[in-house]
Design a protein around this nucleic acid. Structure first.
Lengths: 336, 336
DNA sequence: CTGAAAGCGCTAACAT
DNA sequence: ATGTTAGCGCTTTCAG
């Protein structure tokens, strides 16, 4: 910038004025400065500008579990879009199941003076927050709740979504519905299981022995399913897309009575499967943009009490969830 | 930091030494400073540190077309992982098909003084580079070539991958193979078409009227397919996953002679389709990490001539590509 | 309308 | 082993 000033024959301050489009510079001077800028290929150093101004860096950090999964990818896209609308840049990092790595990311983002943090790694506990989050950096938790509800959070309507699935199946005549969930360490696995139990209880449906959480190994799934079919189960709800895919693989290869299936979380090719899979679709991008909104509101009003936003799910009925064999249920229209 | 120094009763410089773990500070002093740091909740301002040091910001910027697609998501994950291994942070942004937005992202990243840029928006032309990229910011193009080969680039082996598909089908006895590609504006669409033509020529297979590029509307696809089947086509190669999905939708609903199908680009649920889809899998994460490697090599040795890295594809044979009806081709083993 | 001086938070280069 | 001074690139403050 000194060079530009020298070339333009003005003071550094005047160059600064031009660069920042401040009023009160003679058009002719502006012209001269801009020529010098172009000639020297000058670009303002945003970091120095932020430092002197003491303003925010206009950036936010996003800590994820794994950038590559479809849910996280859609979520990230939602975050990035909304952040960009506000003129903010996005820093991203994956924890890959490692709490220490998640902690380092939080610290690195904080050291760069991001304006806020969005934290979504679902395998990592709250220690990421308590141990690494400086008290003056606002954060929003995504897809997992804050243990003491002292932090803003955005969640899917897990309970409601599972209830949609259960009610859908019950209305079609299923009286014995099972729940297959992913690893119990995922908060969403447990939350959706609880939603399943509640929805079944509400309908007076049995759940004894019909709920299975854990690692999605073929063996465990085979055992669970064979137990369920022996017990007269006619429909299964899967608790996330990993569970859905695992069950689909199993059903693909086994023989036996047909099982209706509703999967939590949308699959990209759900409508090309045979049969097309009925799903409870989450609004991943909506979760992301809601989190950004929450963050900006907190930046504007730091004294706000912690809030919790629940994003609705949507039941997408396809053909994997027909009435049970021999049911005299509703007319035969299962397409969307 | 001044506050820490005051509290610890030392000079600011000593605090700096402690923060940066520089040698030559008495353990006892270190202790005292660290207590003050903890007490005041001090965190070093990385931006100020970089400014004074004149060092890099240890960050790279990634400009994508759309963060949410599976290919870009996997690519981003590859980039982020490799960047993190080097202690670098990643800034991401989506262009969403808008060249101007891509340009603004490039400028914003450059103004933040990222050490380098990774540029992948496949709908945007080279104007993003020429108009917005400062000459002193190294960049690597991903999944599209540099027009004048003046920039480092990482590409999938599009030609080889398509050849794998064609040879695979030809070896199973197909003599009339068609190519369905996405919009011609995508460089990859054209590149893969050219690869298709070359592979067919090499095998002596006809291609006249068997190649169709354009928007993936149901109408266009229906017209192309019906023309092809009338002309005796027994197999179709699709040029990207959007084309694959579009063709799958079409085949799903139409009746008519069976068509073998090989799709370029892996689909998440390819093996759960009916029939499971044979694909040419791209190594998206590998492309991402290769690009980061290229960038770091250029940062280390700026005088390197521009390089082009081609990442291999892998043919994943499933059941959508059997020999044509009535062929006396190879034994009937189509599983992976 | 323009400029000189001071300083954001930090560290290099010299003292001591 | 520790402190002092100066300055990274920019913008604020105040004076012309």
């Amino acid at each position: 910038m000194v060079d530009v000033a020298r070339t333009a024959g003005t003071s550094q301050k005047t160059v600064s004025r031009v660069v920042n489009a401040e009023p009160g510079v003679r058009p002719e001077t502006v012209e001269r400065v801009q020529r010098a800028i172009a000639e020297l290929g000058f670009r303002r150093h945003d970091g120095a500008s932020h430092l002197r101004r003491g303003t925010s860096t206009a950036s936010i950090g996003l800590v994820l579990e794994d950038l590559a999964g479809p849910f996280y990818a859609a979520l990230t896209a939602g975050v990035e879009r909304r952040a960009r609308e506000h003129g903010y840049l996005l820093l991203t990092g994956s924890a890959d199941g490692d709490a220490e790595r998640a902690g380092r990311l939080v610290q690195a983002f904080a050291a760069r003076r991001v304006d806020g943090l969005l934290i979504a790694p679902n395998l990592v506990g709250d220690e990421v927050l308590t141990a690494n989050l400086p008290p003056d950096v606002p954060a929003v938790l995504l897809d997992r709740p804050s243990a003491d509800h002292g932090t803003d959070e955005v969640l899917s309507d897990n309970t409601g979504g599972i209830a949609q699935a259960v009610h859908h199946l019950a209305e079609r005549g299923h009286r014995s519905i099972a729940y297959l969930g992913d690893d119990e360490r995922f908060w969403t696995s447990r939350q959706r299981r609880d939603g399943f139990l509640a929805a079944c209880a509400e309908r007076g449906l049995p759940t004894d022995g019909l709920v299975s959480l854990g690692a999605l190994t073929p063996e465990r799934i085979a055992a669970a399913v064979s137990g369920w079919t022996a017990a007269g189960v006619t429909a299964v709800v899967t608790g996330n897309n990993r569970a859905s895919v695992a069950l689909l693989h199993h059903l693909h290869e086994r023989t036996g009575p047909r099982l209706a299936h509703v999967g939590f979380d949308e699959l990209d090719l759900a409508d090309l499967l045979d049969p097309p899979l009925t799903t409870v679709a989450q609004d991943a991008a909506g979760i992301g943009s809601a989190a950004v909104d929450l963050l900006f509101e907190r930046l504007a009003t730091p004294t706000l009490p912690p809030r919790s936003v629940v994003v609705a799910t949507r039941l997408v009925v396809r053909r994997s969830s027909p009435p049970p064999d021999g049911a005299s249920a509703p007319p035969d229209r299962f397409d969307r």
